[in-house]
Design a protein around this nucleic acid. Sequence first.
RNA 1: GGACAGGUGGCAGAGUGGUCGAAUGCAGCGGUCUUGAAAACCGCCGAGGGUGCAAGCUCUCCGUGGGUUCGAAUCCCACCCUGUCCGCCA
Length: 426
Amino acid sequence: MHDIKYIRENPDDFDSALAKRGVDPVSRNLLALDEQSRALKTELQNGQARRNEASKAIGQAKGRGDEAAAQALMAEVAELKGKMPELEEKERAVAGQLHDILAALPNLPMADVPPGADEDDNVEVVRWGAPRVFDFTVREHSDIGPALGLEFETAAEMSGTRFAFLRGQMARLQRAIGQYMLDQQSMKNGFQECAPPLLVRDEAVFGVGQLPKFAEDMFQTTDGRWLIPTAEVSLTNSVRDQILEEEKLPIRLTALTPCFRSEAGSAGKDTKGLIRQHQFEKVELVTIAHPDHSAEEHERMTGAAESILQALELPYRKMLLCAGDMGAAARKTFDLEVWLPGQNAYREISSISNCGDFQARRMNSRFRPEGEEKGTRFVHTLNGSGLAVGRTLVAVLENYQQSDGSVAIPSVLLPYMGGMEKLEPA
RNA sequence: GGACAGGUGGCAGAGUGGUCGAAUGCAGCGGUCUUGAAAACCGCCGAGGGUGCAAGCUCUCCGUGGGUUCGAAUCCCACCCUGUCCGCCA
């Protein structure tokens, strides 16, 4: 949700920032609506002021028993009221139109975000770790997995494609990964552990910018709620409609939850294996930040996600997304891409975004600045995966595979594996 | 699912047709006092919008949306939510 005041003052900056994302100029149209809306408001409010004044006078006239004066005033108000509904409706229509356009526009990319249309224009920032050299033929996780308890057919029977059934040691390893990451983020990186709802209302989804545009990407329950596509929705909405004390910032939250995505637009993409599922687990990070510190929080959060990959000794690269590849709510996004030797490619395992005040405006999340400054300011919100559990499992399987079909357990996960040191084929 | 009670400013909590954007308390801010602090005392203190260079003027908001009325926090209707009890249930 954009600030119409900002657009009023910087229409060209606004258009050129959106142009970076491939959006056609809209400020002229918006400002015309804005002007119309304000003119209608002023006219309407003049009418309301007169009505209020007259109504008060009626009370006073009746109070002193001047029935004639009261009757005259009542007639005046009645006439006034005749034309007000029409004005009201016009004003509402224009304001609604303005709101709808503003609500559908994506966030403005920050100045240091590279231009570009899609992932080909993303910029590599840094590369960490050297891909392991294998002295045998490397396999993909979808080849290694079935002998180790990763069952796709079992799941397909009951749920269809894009679901997996994890059995025995494989289920255990996934749990270990989730537990380890949640422990790190909460105990070491300072994010408060949360267990939020998985079903949320329209407003919550609108607040983080998924609605109205991305309804088809989500699952909806029969009573109209949405299954969260990411815990970002539940965690970020924990401050909706609030005026926070400045000293409470930053608020850093984390949660390990299932995520549900319909993957409507991705038919045929990543159909093999665990990469793209309707249901997957993820450790999410969310920071509610002071606007002056969101950039440094963004770096900090990215570091928190990277620390997991480093501890697991999984090679990765950090990408700065170009304007066209970012999510609608983001102003700047880093992707972490883990090395998958089986696919011979880097694949996204985390996405960390600074949303500025975009979500805060939609959720009405503010804070009261300390000191003499009056009023309130919108907070900044950030979110990132720290990390996606399913894709981490994929990375472990592929990077730690052995020639005999077994998979070694990364040392930091050993305390979570109940004595198991490797996954062995059945 | 059934019955009842409620939803008011950062929080607590008055207010049942006009003088109510709303008593009071707490918290917060400014000041007096004090070596400093506390206490005490004095003052300020909801949010969003329109208009204006500004001071100011003005509009909207008492869960949401409708309605009654010259006038609604207050009356009516619908919906949403919260609490308590009962039923059911992991």
